[in-house]
Amino acid sequence: MRNVLTAVLSVALLASPAAAKPALRDVAAVDDALLDLGLADQIRKECPDISARFLRAISYLNNIHQTARSLGYTEAEIDAYRKSPEEKARMKARGAAYLEANGVDTSDPQSYCMLGRTEIQKSSRIGSLLRAK
């Protein structure tokens, strides 16, 4: 009996690291989706010619949340990720890099408009959250 218990415990301990969930920042289906949502929000705030598709954005946010839940993350884990100052800073840096790589001059609202129109035209995930006025 002792050998069986030892074997079961050994298997459980070996399986634990493999079964551990990655940090939400490493789950592209969540992290990249939140980045796109944030970029769409920033574009609509900076460009006077573009507005948000708010109902679509709310639905999109709910889908991200459900994705995290379906992957086994708890509400506490999701909230910790969402509220983390480190994650917010990392996400802002990712967003700034995306804007720069796509030619946005943060002092020029029209450059946000150009990016927004491009994203809308491409029917990208960011573009699907925006509407040209």
Rank of each mutant, 00 (worst) to 15 (best):
E100Y: 09
A93Q: 15
S59E: 04
A101H: 11
P109M: 05
L5G: 00
K21P: 10
A89S: 11
T106Y: 07
G38P: 11
L39K: 05
L71F: 02
E119K: 01
M114V: 14
C113S: 08
A28Y: 02
G103A: 06
Q121P: 10
D32H: 11
R44S: 12
L37I: 01
N63E: 15
R90C: 05
L9T: 07
R125Q: 10
P22I: 03
S59C: 00
E46D: 11
M91D: 08
A93D: 15
I43P: 09
T118E: 05
M114L: 14
P22S: 14
A57I: 02
L35N: 02
M1H: 10
G38W: 05
Y81V: 06
P109L: 04
R94G: 08
Q42D: 06
P85E: 07
L13W: 08
L13V: 11
A68V: 05
A18D: 07
L130K: 02
S107T: 12
D26E: 14
R117G: 00
K21R: 15
P22E: 07
V11N: 09
G127V: 04
L55F: 12
Y98M: 12
Q110H: 12
G38Y: 02
K83D: 10
Y60C: 01
S123C: 05
L24W: 07
L34T: 03
D26M: 05
R117S: 11
S128L: 06
E75W: 04
S111W: 03
F54E: 15
P85T: 00
L39E: 07
K92P: 02
P17N: 07
K133H: 08
I126P: 08
S123E: 15
V104L: 11
P109A: 07
A33V: 01
D49I: 11
L129D: 05
S16R: 15
A101M: 13
P85A: 12
D108V: 04
A93F: 10
K45D: 14
E86T: 13
R25Y: 08
S84F: 10
A40M: 01
F54A: 10
L129E: 02
P17H: 05
G127I: 06
D79H: 14
A18Y: 09
A96S: 13
A15H: 10
A29P: 04
Y81M: 01
R2N: 01
R25C: 01
I58N: 13
